[in-house]
């Protein structure tokens, strides 16, 4: 991957994706070979929005590469609460770290951050925009279970505000994948995402119910219908509880259906699914470590190459 930053999944070619996933597999097979590879480097964790697992996942991945992390902490206790702009904040933090991981409630925040700094920026979620590192671990999980071609993938839930969905749908267009989008009418994929999908000539279909397509699917990617993304609580309550699956629902599915979820789940996947062979969401979450290690390794390697310095192996 010859990229300086990871901002959106749309920037990634098939080769970019496969290079990171190949490296993730190497990392998973032989993590000791990657320990201390970037000793002395520092990664800044800049989370302007609450996050537990993404923050911990990057923190853990960094430390397994020998990278130290500095954490901005909660927004309430930082200079952001004093009204500092994001542009200024990242310019300051750039001086403390060799790369930034950014989560922010506004769409486009990572693009703006990348314009203001010269170290690599990883978008760890920008509002209802993109979450491309999640997509890389999603693709790794799909690849390990099915490969990435000749696939039929169903993506269900909150497709309008779900940034993991926006990134995943874009990345899947690089592969031979039929995509089915299953959501209530009010939560269909947004115009901007549909525009990109159509531009690539991707095979997509949209449905309001899972049942008619369930038996065609190799992968069912379920997302939480997120209360905090709704301007109107009534709209949330109206659709909440729909699009819930349990073990009985999945009796109609193919035996090797892989059920994924970016987590956290609330009640959209019943606990009894955990006991089935379909459940892959915990494996998926664990894949965050080798994939984010591979990603950080790649971006730091690219940055070092840009500086003209040799990486000490």
């Amino acid at each position: 991957m010859r990229q300086d930053h990871l901002i959106t999944a749309t920037q990634l070619s098939r080769d970019d994706i496969e290079a990171v996933l190949d490296r993730a597999r190497e990392v998973a097979d032989d993590p000791a070979a990657y320990a201390d590879r970037h000793a002395g480097r520092v990664l800044a964790l800049c989370f302007f929005e609450p996050s537990t697992r993404t923050r911990m996942s990057f923190d853990s991945a960094a430390k397994r590469l020998g990278i130290d992390t500095v954490d901005m902490g909660d927004v309430d206790s930082s200079s952001v609460s004093k009204g500092e702009s994001l542009s200024d904040t990242v310019r300051v933090i750039e001086g403390y770290a060799d790369a930034l991981v950014l989560r922010h409630p506004s769409e486009g925040a990572a693009t703006l951050a990348a314009e203001n700094v010269s170290v690599p920026v990883v978008n760890a979620g920008d509002g209802a925009g993109q979450h491309p590192s999640q997509t890389l671990l999603d693709l790794h999980t799909i690849r390990e279970n099915h490969g990435l071609d000749d696939l039929t993938v169903g993506i269900m839930g909150d497709l309008k505000y779900g940034r993991t969905v926006h990134s995943l749908a874009a990345a899947l267009t690089e592969f031979d994948v039929n995509q089915h989008f299953i959501s209530p009418e009010s939560l269909r994929i947004p115009r901007s995402v549909r525009f990109d999908l159509h531009e690539t000539g991707a095979q997509i279909r949209e449905h309001e119910e899972l049942e008619p397509v369930l038996d065609e699917l190799d992968v069912l990617y379920v997302t939480r219908i997120q209360k905090e993304r709704f301007p109107d609580e009534n709209e949330y309550h109206r659709v909440a509880g729909e699009y819930r699956i349990d073990a009985e629902t999945l009796e109609a599915a193919a035996d090797d259906l892989t059920v994924m979820h970016p987590l956290p789940r609330v009640d959209e996947i019943a606990p009894d699914v955990d006991e089935t062979d379909h459940a892959t969401y915990f494996e998926q979450a664990h894949n965050g470590i080798p994939v984010r290690m591979a990603l950080l390794d790649t971006l730091l390697e690219n940055a070092e190459a840009d500086e003209g310095t040799e990486v000490d192996r």
Binding site: T8, E107, G108
Partner: peptide, 9 residues
């Protein structure tokens, strides 16, 4: 036209 930051059309 399409926003370079958030992709809104």
């Amino acid at each position: 036209v399409r926003c370079d930051y958030c992709s809104t059309i």
